[in-house]
Amino acid sequence: MVLAALLVILIILNICIGSVHITVREVIGGFTGVEISDTAKNIIWQIRLPRALAATVLGGALALSGYLLQTFFHNPIAGPFVLGISSGSKLAVALVMVFLSETLTHISSFMLIAAAFVGAAAAMGFVLLMSKAVDKMSMLIVGGVMIGYICSAITDIVVTFAQDADIVNLHNWSKGSFSGISWENVTVMSFTVFVTSAIVFGMSKPISAYQLGETYAKSMGVDIKLFRMLLVLLSSVLAASVTAFAGPVSFVGIAVPHLAKRLLKTAKPILMIPASFLGGAVFCLFCDLLARNLFAPTEMSISTVTAVFGAPVVIAVLIQRKRGR
């Protein structure tokens, strides 16, 4: 498919382009292990490849998380970022980073994910409580954004009181960035994200029934309670794994599922799930490429770039919906 081809091309581009230029031949050389300088090899294996893989996996996870949330809330502009879930996990991760880094010398990837998940789940809990109280979908989003602001504010306070050494790291991360990803990170995130995504794919049948609404899904034999719980859990895990490693990344979750839908001209989950994942990966790789290189050597935060491309998509969706009615 087009998306898969785009993905491969973008991964290669992401490895090639940077402050040190690497030719495509060198990249191929790097993989096959022939005629290549040590510097190039280092750059490829230690910096660019893990970063590109992270952007791929996390981008996919974000888009899929967004797709699940949109399905769950029957709300076209739901996503982990606007609903405050990303910010919730950001807060939890920041707390762990600041308070535990004094006692522990090394914080493992799993701990980061666990912390992020707790934060995401807590934020999700608030959003769910809110969704019971308000039935208007616009209000749900406003509430989610508020939760996001509260969490960000607390994160800022935590960061302010953190020790100097932590701040540099935290500051970059809390704005969202794919930089500084290690191979250990990549392994853990890939494992988490792929397992979760596989479960999501396995749920494509009940998700398709859920498109007709809860009552109809139930009438066709879907165990609604279990299904809803799984949706919440899986979308939280996906959003949490992103935040744990790359900080909060905006708009990928909202925008990509819509782009995928337009591309496929269908909303069938069995196609939408892989398409959202690939789409998210492509989108994030592309944005990371720009974030790194547009104003090199200064690196932009990834959210800056995703917002530039993502926000117009959201606006377009809203306008189109209005017209469709």
Binding site: G202, S204, K205, S208, A209, Q211, L212, Y216, M220, G221, I270
Partner: peptide
């Protein structure tokens, strides 16, 4: 939409 009615009869992936 009509095809959704086959839900109880289709396999794992619907």
């Amino acid at each position: 939409v009509v095809a959704m009615g086959r839900y109880p009869y289709t396999g794992k992936f619907g």
